[in-house]
Nucleic acid binder design. Structure first.
Lengths: 178, 178
DNA sequence: CTCCATACAGTCCGAAACAGACGGTATGCG
DNA sequence: CGCATACCGTCTGTTTCGGACTGTATGGAG
């Protein structure tokens, strides 16, 4: 069974476990405002994956009789067990940093000397802005007990953003000096 | 034209620009030992993408008459121009951190209390090991002028690894104390 | 009550990515 | 000569992706 489950599967199972019975639209919003900052999950997949998980017996679904006829998914016992087994097992994968800016930096010799400075300047600004967003989130949610313990991922996000900012800032200084 | 080009396209164009005429096998090796540490590019794609770029006039290819009959790709002038244009344009994409460990951390409430400690311990070890790999690479290549300037990306990689190590180490201490 | 904008609910589609398996053969070494 | 390995590639089915598209419930303003 576990070999049929992808990161998207676990994100769907996990999000429903955390927040309770959810529609795909709920999932889209919840994921987009949390882990979606680090790893984007396409909207269409958050509609198709729950149905697949229903077919695998890990979720069950019910559809509203009237109104918007929304389709709400809830975790089954096997679904919860799959999620818990995944959480308990070793994690061989190393993280991937998919960063276009880094690719550009790697190939910078091929371009113009000014390219790197522009890139670094823009990255410094982008990372500063993202840090501001995360810090604002920390402030806004710190007093909500229900979500405060989920801020731990935001801490990792901030740590990584500060690291990137450090790197691009020092690169910017180096290009300024050259 | 640029809307037909993906990150993989630019990685192929850029790698050939940096190292000169290359076979797909060359690309596979060169990418795997550099940016492939951060962003994995599947082997089969490094065979199919150059042909697509030939069809678009950005690469040209020649096949050996005898021996291994290897197929070597070289950059055309339009290919070089595309690459340089990409390097010069703004970079709206923010990096994505695809990290299974982070997903597990986010959903940790659903699992057992011991899960987080095990995860943190494992991540500390993994990041230490990756740092050792990168530091070894830095040492080994520092004296080779031909590649020394391409170590800049490795610096970013190290910065991010140290950030991750800091985070997981402090989390490990916190779980030890709890 | 009507109208309109927006939020919500979803599907579709072509292209790209992916993982892994598979087959073939040149090359170098014992 | 034989064998192991490096090199050269293709194929395949599935999943992911990005974006476009359609439909409709809902709430608010006039």
């Amino acid at each position: 069974m576990a070999d049929r489950l992808s990161p998207t599967s676990y994100v769907v199972l996990g999000t429903i476990a955390l927040r309770g019975p959810s529609t795909s639209y709920d999932l889209k919003r919840a994921v987009g405002r949390s882990i979606g900052y680090f790893w984007h999950f396409p909207h269409a997949q958050l509609y198709s994956e729950p149905q697949r998980l229903v077919d695998l017996g890990l979720l069950e679904a019910e559809t509203e009789e009237g109104g918007r006829r929304r389709r709400t998914f809830r975790l089954t016992d096997p679904g919860r067990e799959e999620l818990r087994a995944w959480l308990a097992e070793p994690t061989p994968e190393h993280f991937q940093m998919r960063d276009i800016a880094e690719l550009k930096l790697f190939f910078n010799e091929v371009g113009e000397p000014g390219d790197v400075e522009r890139l670094a300047r823009e990255q410094v600004a982008a990372h500063r802005e993202r840090i501001a967003v995360y810090e604002d989130m920390q402030k806004r949610y710190a007093s909500l007990d229900a979500v405060a313990k989920r801020m731990i991922t935001l801490r990792l996000g901030l740590e990584m953003e500060h690291a990137a900012l450090r790197f691009w800032s020092s690169l910017l200084e180096e290009t300024d000096r050259a």
